[in-house]
Design a binder for these strands. Structure first.
Length: 419
DNA sequence: TCTGGGGTCCTAGGACCC
DNA sequence: TCTGGGGTCCTAGGACCC
């Protein structure tokens, strides 16, 4: 039997963060492990922890109280990125076209060169799955289908450590067993709408007539319908795209009614976002910030720059008046955040015609120095004076938590030209 | 799940132009 | 000043994802 079209493979790391910890520290194997200590809620956990009754988002204090045998770890993002890279590299050994979709998921295109027959497809998927496990020590759930949507449905069908290959003949069966709310692209708003129309599983949706779909739904659902029929709409993207926007938000504790404390939380987020932007070699010309009240109400403003910048001091100077206009005395705030958008690569930005060129240059050097000090002495080693309140408040919380080792490098506030 | 953090894409509708 | 028709660009906000 010859293969008459290409297939897509989707791989998905099982309990990825927890699995990385266990791969790195094998003595934890077989134990109930929960990741997410610093956030205060369970972010990821092993199947042993799940078996005890741990659920996503469960507060850490509750876990400590009711399941004292559980091992609780902080999130080690750099470690997970390493394993993510490994996963991607392994897949790239077998396939030419691979998309790193998220930290724990990849898509790959199985081309005719890689597999001539249906049996070849199955063998290849099996080989990839085994290589992944052998070389990372983590199990993966693997799915194969004609499109991205079908491959996603396949990898989800059996978890953990599953391998589901949907042949054209099996599609109806698998789809009929997939609740519509579990389909990639159907969220909490759309699922109830479809249910109202009597559509509860993926097959029912796929069986709706095309003419009805086009008349009733907008582009996202139309595309989904085509993908379910095996028409490839979503291509495998290539992974090294620059981000289009970049944000940093943080909930702080305790909540505060103090203008300067809230502003310094925002300042810290702006520093974080700018540091990341500089690492990507990008500049921004549009800043949106927000504050979030104790009642989860958002208030925000946007500021457009007539030039491009990667400098937090520029941003802080510009938004301070807007912040003061938005801040309401007497309200309690729990979080702040900032989004930088309209990003451009550093070298493509025209300087503005007059004046600020030299100043921008000098500040550029200043931020280089900033970044180097951070690289050498750690993320908290240097920060703007405007972020001072936030940095010292957060340190107090760290020191209070006896499980966090004390860090010897003292924070040095940078009393810059700000404010 | 009384609510963490970081993204992308789509669409309706306003502003502006001929 | 009002009415007709057609087009582009931009933004706010919704919905979804991991």
């Amino acid at each position: 039997m010859s293969m008459y079209h290409e297939y897509i493979i989707h791989i998905d790391g099982d309990s990825f963060f927890a699995a990385c910890e266990i791969a790195q520290y094998p003595h934890l194997k077989g134990l109930p492990v929960v990741v997410g200590q610093e956030r205060g809620i369970a972010t990821a956990f092993t199947y042993e922890a799940k078996a005890l009754g741990i659920t996503r988002g469960m507060p850490i204090f509750k876990i400590k109280k009711f399941f004292p045998e559980v091992i609780i770890l902080p999130t080690h993002f750099e470690l997970y990125k390493m394993y993510s890279q490994k996963m991607s590299n392994i897949l790239r050994r077998y396939l030419r076209v691979v998309e790193d979709y998220s930290i724990d998921e990849c898509f790959g295109l199985i081309e005719n060169d890689h597999a001539h027959t249906w049996e070849d497809v199955c063998t290849l998927a099996q080989t990839i799955k085994i290589a992944l496990q052998k070389e990372t020590g983590i199990t993966f759930s693997v799915g194969v289908g004609r499109t991205k949507v079908l491959a996603k449905i396949a990898s989800k069908a059996q978890k953990p450590d599953g391998l589901t290959i949907i042949s054209d003949r099996d599609e109806e069966m698998v789809l009929s067993q997939t609740p519509i709310s579990k389909v990639w692209g159907i969220g909490y708003r759309t699922a109830p709408t479809l249910k109202q129309k009597g559509i509860t599983n993926a097959l029912q949706f796929r069986n709706l007539p095309e003419e009805y779909i086009m008349r009733t739904f907008t582009k996202p659902l139309q595309e989904l319908w085509h993908e379910m029929h095996g028409t490839r709409i979503f291509d495998i993207g290539h992974s090294d795209n620059d981000p289009k926007s970049l944000q940093a938000t943080r909930t702080f504790f305790p909540m505060s009614t103090d203008r300067e404390i809230v502003f310094s939380e925002l300042s810290k987020n702006i520093e974080t976002a700018c540091a990341r932007m500089r690492r990507y070699g990008l500049l921004t010309s549009s800043v949106i910030f927000f504050v979030k009240t104790s009642e989860f109400k958002y208030f925000g403003r946007e500021f457009r720059f007539p030039f491009f910048t990667d400098n937090p001091i520029d941003i802080l100077d510009s938004i301070r008046p807007l912040f003061d206009a938005v801040f309401v005395k007497g309200l309690r705030y729990r979080a702040t955040g900032v989004t930088l958008s309209h990003l451009r690569p550093f070298n493509k930005c025209e300087q503005d015609i007059f004046g600020t060129q030299k100043e921008v240059h000098d500040r550029g050097k200043l931020m280089d120095t900033f970044d180097r000090i951070r690289d050498l002495y750690g993320k908290n080693s240097i920060f703007l004076g405007a972020s001072m309140h936030a940095m010292t408040r957060n340190r107090q919380r760290e020191i209070l938590d006896e499980s966090t080792p004390y860090q010897w490098n003292l924070p040095v506030p940078f009393m810059g030209e700000v404010l």
